[in-house]
């Protein structure tokens, strides 16, 4: 269990590179079709080990968000959404708690928890993250229609990438 930190550092860098170098050009390639944005980097927050102290989770989520912001030139938007996503993570974990409980040394991965569990967990978290991200991007409730449309279109595409990443690497922790 001592290698949880290096694993997460590697995942941090890997997801950041994937998001910034591959998914960002794909997203901006769909010119004019502004509703779609592939977002995968929150997977890092989703897969943090269950015993991660909340301050550490918040700080690493903030770091991830601010680095993505640097690439997207949207200072603070991804960071704010990431910090909020990290802060609410205990809630879906509580709702989806298996009868026998969690092993706090594990990460909530597909391999550990099963496909169905992971689908439910990642859908809630990614949906929430996208909604918060687009809300902060629009920054006013009068754009509610566009916020919901963007969330609706980006959600399945982002989930596809999340599941692809999980299937390719299928990490245990």
């Amino acid at each position: 269990m001592t290698n949880a930190i290096p694993i997460n550092i590697i995942r941090f860098i890997g997801l950041l590179v994937l998001q910034v170098l591959i998914l960002k050009p794909i997203s901006s390639g769909w010119e004019g079709f502004i509703f779609v944005n592939f977002i995968v980097y929150p997977l890092f927050i989703l897969l943090l080990p269950l015993r991660t102290p909340m301050p550490a989770a918040l700080l690493s989520a903030f770091a991830m968000g601010i680095l993505v912001d640097a690439a997207y030139d949207s200072w603070g938007v991804h960071a704010a959404a990431s910090v909020l996503t990290a802060y609410v993570r205990p809630l879906p974990l509580k709702w989806l708690q298996p009868r026998e409980g969690y092993n706090v040394n594990h990460s909530p991965t597909k391999k550990r928890m099963g496909l169905r569990w992971f689908l439910a967990y990642s859908s809630i978290m990614m949906g929430f993250h996208l909604l918060v991200y687009y809300s902060l991007d629009a920054f006013s409730p009068i754009f509610i229609k566009s916020i919901l449309l963007k969330t609706l279109y980006s959600f399945p595409l982002s989930m596809v990438f999340v599941m692809i990443v999980m299937n390719i690497f299928n990490p245990e922790d």
Binding site: M54, P55, F62, W75, G76, V77, A80, F139
Partner: peptide
């Protein structure tokens, strides 16, 4: 601490967004 850190980080983020 976690709650305070959360508020602090969100405040920093929102300031960045507006600035």
């Amino acid at each position: 601490g976690a709650g305070m850190l959360f508020v602090l980080l969100e405040a920093v983020s929102l300031t960045l967004i507006i600035q």
